[in-house]
């Protein structure tokens, strides 16, 4: 299925992920954590199900258990003592804090995996470009260079192997020398090819005054709607943050603001924000389906 959310304008995506990742990092309140973790998992699964499941079960779940278990063993703060291990108290607060931090950490990692898939290199280049055009060109050239470099080093390695001077032929001393030689050949090649690239840039007028920066991203009506919706949802979340709806005290004893009508509203807004990619996809799906 097409991910319509990922097709939004890079600036909208950037704003969204920055907000969600920052909120996930700083809101340690269990309701907020649960929302972020759940939505982060769902969004990541919508992008690539298999990878998300593998990542969650092989890495996140073990990490969750380890952090929950280790924190109370190292940290003895907290008022409610559950048991003693080697004369050291294990507290309920430390246990919960370990669990919450692990949840926070998992949520952030899941959101970053979404970021990685959705904000591809060219979108990042574009975002840079709107701030500093020359930086974005540099970035784009680096992205061109890295795969070329990798391919060339393989070619050189094979060529050297072909005349009996590979990095895996001969004694350890000769191997090391051959390996160094391969790097040296690569360097000369890179410098020499750099001249051709520079020529090619100059031939196409690089260095003339008044260079512009082109991108294939246009800010369309859908981006505008998405941006407005996002900003509208950010307000209640910020309001909640200022009034302390998201605050939690772990030590010496747990303390949260009691759940009220206002706090429910803030939770709802935060949920809508975190589930935005999924809701957006669903909304577009319904809309386009109806119009056919």
């Amino acid at each position: 299925m097409r991910n319509r959310f990922a097709e939004l304008h890079p600036a909208v995506l950037f704003l969204y992920f920055t907000a969600v990742i920052l909120f996930s990092m700083f809101f340690m309140h269990p309701v907020f954590l649960a929302i972020s973790l759940f939505c982060g998992f769902a969004c990541s699964a919508a992008l690539h199900l298999g990878k998300t499941l593998r990542f969650s079960f092989r890495f996140l779940l073990p990490m969750l258990l380890v952090m929950t278990a280790v924190n109370p063993l190292l940290n003895h703060r907290g008022a409610t003592i559950l048991l003693y291990v080697n004369d050291n108290p294990v507290t309920r607060e430390a246990l919960l804090y370990g669990f919450s931090s692990a949840c926070m950490f998992s949520a952030v990692l899941l959101w970053f995996s979404c970021w990685n898939t959705v904000i591809t290199s060219d979108k990042l280049v574009y975002l840079f470009g709107s701030v500093a055009p020359s930086l974005s060109l540099l970035f784009s050239m680096v992205l061109r260079f890295v795969p070329r470099f990798k391919a060339q080093i393989r070619t050189i390695e094979n060529a050297q192997k072909g005349i009996g001077k590979g990095a895996d032929q001969g004694s350890i001393f000769i191997r090391a020398k051959n390996g160094m030689n391969i790097l040296s050949i690569l360097t000369t090649w890179a410098l020499e090819n750099g001249i051709t690239t520079a020529d090619s840039m100059r031939a196409r007028g690089y260095g003339l005054a008044g260079r512009t920066s082109f991108s294939i991203y246009a800010f369309n009506k859908r981006d505008k709607t998405a941006l407005i919706v996002l900003i509208v949802m950010l307000f209640p979340v910020f309001y909640g943050a200022f009034t302390g709806e998201n605050n939690i005290r772990y030590y010496p004893s747990l303390a949260v603001k009691p759940i009220s009508f206002v706090s429910n509203l803030v939770y709802a807004a935060y949920f809508l924000l975190c589930a935005f990619p999924l809701l957006f996809n669903a909304a577009i799906e319904v809309k386009e389906h109806d119009s056919i």
Binding site: S121, V125, M141, N193, T196, T197, R204, T212, F214
Partner: peptide
Amino acid sequence: SPEAQIVTDKVWHELSFGLESLGYDS
């Protein structure tokens, strides 16, 4: 050299490189 002449990482960016240098609008 087909390789060394290419400056950027995306096809569309390469196509627009010269026009950017000349300062055309988007």
